[in-house]
């Protein structure tokens, strides 16, 4: 029983980081007059931990003790994310084939981002955590559960989360503007594509479409909102059953590996 409370320092530090981070609170500001950027408390908690590590304030033993606790505390996130599935199941029944099938387009990230990560940046396993999805909360839960957030895959997904938080709305807004002006896709398709699982990114990606086609605003907004709801319903299972296995499979092919554990450094 005594052993069970031997690690009290880790938990006290976790609580302290949490409280400090929440007291700083979410900070919002705008870039270039139209792109909102939000800094969330969880980001401060992570950065404070990193700072303490840089100043050698956290002994290595404590870091190792904390490692499995990520996978346990992440279960609450799993529960919360899953709670949006049940009440929205009806939306799937009501959605048309295009809305449902375009959800599989979310897997497109793997075939685009993974080659870049592996071949351009020579990334290791972090590439898997970073490229299987757009790294939102559900992705944190998946990687946290499967690999732990302090693993290489975890670094990938956390890095992706931070990037998305900082640059996501800006980047999605610019990308949607560009694609909208190119005129390759119908506004309906762009609207459906905008719903990827992050509310702020959806708004950013939708705005240029509504701007360009105000007469279709209502329909376009409805498509984006439904696609967004569908992503929140299927995201977790799509990630678990399709995105992660496909990413791992493709990663092994790219690296010429038989098993995911070790790669031999062949030049």
């Amino acid at each position: 029983m005594k052993d069970l409370f031997k690690d009290w320092r880790v938990h006290v530090l976790c609580l302290a980081l949490t409280v400090v981070a929440e007291l700083i609170a979410t900070q919002k500001f705008t870039l270039f007059g139209k792109f909102g950027v939000s800094l969330f408390p969880m980001l401060y908690a992570l950065i404070l931990g990193i700072l303490l590590a840089i100043f050698k304030a956290i002994p290595k033993s404590m870091m190792e003790t904390a490692s499995p606790y990520i996978g346990i505390s992440v279960m609450f996130l799993t529960a919360k994310v899953s709670a949006s599935i049940g009440p929205n199941l009806e939306a799937i029944l009501k959605a048309g084939p295009a809305l449902i099938l375009q959800e599989f387009g979310n897997l497109g990230t793997i075939f685009f981002a993974l080659p870049v990560a592996v071949f351009v940046f020579k990334m290791g396993r972090a590439a898997v955590g970073c490229s299987f999805s757009i790294s939102r909360e559900g992705s944190l839960a998946i990687i946290g559960d499967l690999y732990g957030l302090d693993s290489e895959e975890g670094q990938g997904v956390m890095g992706g989360y931070i990037t998305g938080t900082l640059l996501g709305t800006l980047f999605n807004g610019l990308m949607a503007s560009l694609l909208c002006s190119l005129g390759i896709f119908h506004p309906y398709s762009l609207a459906m594509a905008a719903g990827t699982g992050s509310a702020s990114m959806m708004s950013a990606a939708l705005a240029p479409v509504v701007d360009a086609f105000p007469e279709m605003a209502e329909q376009v907004e409805a498509y984006a909102a439904t696609s967004q709801v569908l992503s929140s319903v299927d995201g977790l299972y799509m990630g678990l059953f399709l995105a992660i296995p496909i990413t791992n499979w493709l990663y092994r092919i790219f690296k010429g590996e038989k098993k995911p554990e070790k790669k031999t450094a062949a030049k």
């Binding site: 880790v10 530090l13 976790c14 609580l15 980081l17 949490t18 981070a21 929440e22 969330f40 408390p41 969880m42 980001l43 908690a45 992570l46 950065i47 404070l48 931990g49 990193i50 303490l52 590590a53 840089i54 956290i58 290595k60 404590m62 870091m63 190792e64 904390a66 490692s67 606790y69 990520i70 505390s73 992440v74 609450f76 996130l77 981002a113 990560a117 351009v120 940046f121 020579k122 990334m123 972090a126 590439a127 970073c130 490229s131 757009i134 790294s135 909360e137 944190l140 946290g144 957030l149 302090d150 290489e152 975890g154 670094q155 990938g156 956390m158 890095g159 992706g160 990037t163 640059l167």
Partner: peptide, 30 residues
């Protein structure tokens, strides 16, 4: 998410070099 990332923040120090080295790559991949 805050307590989860606090545990992650405490723990991630042991792999900080890898994280720093891959920073740019992760941003571009994301």
């Amino acid at each position: 998410c805050t307590p989860i990332l606090a545990y992650a923040g405490i723990s991630i120090g042991k792999d900080l070099d890898a994280f720093k080295k891959q920073g740019v790559a992760i941003v571009c991949t994301a």
